[in-house]
């Protein structure tokens, strides 16, 4: 795709060249159904190109290396992806690196076997140092959610049908350590809930978060939806 050339006033009789068409006339906001359609159509984006995706109702500009969402004063969160939970684990990769924090929401999660729901970042299976409170009895208890292991974002022993989990990852696009905090609840056989906080500290000195893996400690997912939002 042609690089934007700025603005030009055409005079009567001017010959419209391919360079003029690509550099001036084709420059605008290109509307696509989703990122895949944009990737297929714009195979070589240029710095300064603009696009709009109907899948997330967001305008993007190309900064020379990636499509970046145009920040909006009226919207602090942008939906980046929606994934249905299935199998033993779901890997959500190539997460857009244009935002400050990630907010992850899991709703309607349902498991075939009683167990925990786990989180891994990138290809690292441990390095979570997270603790919290479990309120599954009349007396809340302190619990370890991830002691140099995968993080349990849902810590329970019932299958149920309506598990809800949310968590945030701070400064996820930076090559550093990240804090993580979240909560979960279920209204299955018995009401249960928990809250946790801590961090992800890979020994290598930290890394940007480009991929997360949601898994089960037992059985598989029957249902559930993961939505990832970028927080400006």
């Amino acid at each position: 795709m042609g690089a934007p050339l700025g603005f030009k006033t055409f005079a009567t009789g001017d010959v419209l060249t391919a360079a003029d068409t690509n550099g001036y006339l084709m420059q605008g906001v290109w509307v696509f159904a989703d990122a895949a359609a944009r990737t297929a159509a714009v195979t070589s984006p240029q710095e300064g190109n603009f696009s709009y995706l109907k899948s997330d109702d967001t305008t993007y500009y190309y900064n020379g290396s990636a499509w970046t969402a145009v920040s909006s004063a009226t919207s602090g969160m942008t939906l980046l992806s929606t994934t249905t939970l299935t199998g033993s684990s779901v890997t959500i990769s190539s997460i857009n690196q244009s935002y400050k924090n990630l907010y992850v929401s899991i709703t309607g999660a349902n498991f075939t076997n009683a167990g925990n729901c786990t989180l891994k970042i990138n290809s690292v299976t441990d390095s979570f140092w997270v603790s919290g409170i479990v309120a599954d009895t009349s007396t809340p208890t302190v619990a370890v959610f991830g002691g140099n292991t995968a993080l349990n974002i849902f810590k329970d022993t019932q299958t149920g049908s309506s598990h809800v989990m949310t968590f945030t990852i701070s400064n996820y696009a930076d090559a550093s350590y990240h804090t993580i905090q979240g909560a979960y609840t279920t209204v299955a056989a018995a009401f249960r809930a928990g809250y946790y906080g801590g961090g992800w500290s890979p020994i290598a000195g930290g890394a940007a978060v480009s991929q997360i893996v949601i898994g089960t400690s037992a059985g598989t997912f029957n249902a559930g939806t993961v939505k990832i939002y970028g927080v400006s």
Partner: peptide, 19 residues
């Protein structure tokens, strides 16, 4: 082996396969 799902959010490609 158990099934896993991989969702590439850049291309929106979803792959379901065995571990």
């Amino acid at each position: 082996k158990p099934m896993v799902r991989i969702h590439n959010t850049e291309t929106d490609e979803i792959i379901d396969r065995e571990m």
